[in-house]
Design a protein around this nucleic acid. Structure first.
Lengths: 176, 176
DNA sequence: CAAATCCTGTACTGATCGGTATAGATGATG
DNA sequence: CATCATCTATACCGATCAGTACAGGATTTG
């Protein structure tokens, strides 16, 4: 149910996802939606964001903090490429950040990116990089991923996403 | 009038910018809006996009193609920082690209980014870079700008935007 | 199988949506 | 000043909005 909602919010945005379009796309009737999410649209979006957050925590952030750095970073690039379908799918958190929807979910949005940067910087430090430099490189990588999602969708060109990801992966592993 | 509309669409997104919120924020009544934009909301957004496009064409793309490369690229970074208010303002074109709004303005959105990348690659080629390498570096820079806008707003941190821009400028001027 | 609980389709609410019609205000032109 | 074109405020339209109420269907529980 939550994945269906996620896809709808991703494609339509928070404001664009009206109740009728949600039921139409997910096949879930209004009765069911309000049974599970008495708080309405906002609670639905919050549940979606929570699941996205959990997924990244489990499959990206935690491995970055826990596993051997090089392997975890390699897995991150693969997981990111797969999760975002090589740019065919956007980042809901990033999209929500751009308009006034941000105000509703500010702390979730902030935490998602902050923890991503922190976890990546942690892996870089453990791989021998200096702290400041690791943080800059981590920010740069997350920035690059978000930008690649915007551009690959704007240009409707998945190859741009893969190309950008490759370049960023190379840069991150070489970085001075 | 168009700048007022631009700010409204930027903050609320296309779907979030209802007629009542537009009149409320801009002070322009419904009568005037429909007098100048008989095509309604879609025509308003199209006018805004056209003005954004013209601004970048005049102050970024054209200089990149015409002026001395190093100077034009330097001016691009300064203009971008100023236009986006160091991350305090988002890119309307990028935001529209993320949700279904893209479908309405697909060719404008595509052209905006395509011409940016082309113009920047042109400047890089004229500064002695190989064509393929120039294009990759140009894509990378535009990707980085869009990503920096997403993250600086997500983290509500303008310093991240400035930091990211500096790093990208340095990288672009050094690039192998 | 009966009873209680959980789930869902449908009909409805008042509010707001994008858009229209128009009368009168405003400003330019002679 | 008179005329005419331009502009704008207001009332209004049907459609759709988010959300509620609830009856009845489906499922679990004993």
């Amino acid at each position: 149910m939550v994945p269906l909602l996620a896809e709808t919010f991703r494609e339509l945005g928070f404001e664009g996802a009206t109740l009728s379009r949600i039921t139409e796309r997910t096949g879930i009737g209004k009765g069911s939606l309000y049974h599970f999410f008495p708080g309405g649209k906002e609670e639905m979006a919050a549940a979606v964001l929570a699941e996205v957050d959990r997924w990244f925590e489990d499959f990206v952030y935690e491995p970055l903090r826990r596993d051997e750095p090089a392997a975890a970073i390699g897995a991150m690039w693969r997981n990111v490429d797969e999760y975002f379908r090589s740019g065919g799918r956007i980042c809901l958190v990033g999209a929500f950040a751009l308009d006034e929807t941000r105000e509703r979910f500010a702390s979730t949005i902030n935490g998602y990116f902050q923890r991503w940067i922190d976890a990546l910087a942690d892996a870089l430090v453990r791989s021998g990089r200096a702290a400041g430099e690791a943080r800059a490189a981590a920010e740069d990588a997350v920035v690059g991923i978000q930008g690649a999602l915007v551009l690959s969708r704007a240009l409707d060109d998945k190859s741009l996403f893969k190309r950008a990801l490759d370049q960023m992966a190379k840069r991150l592993s070489v970085t001075a």
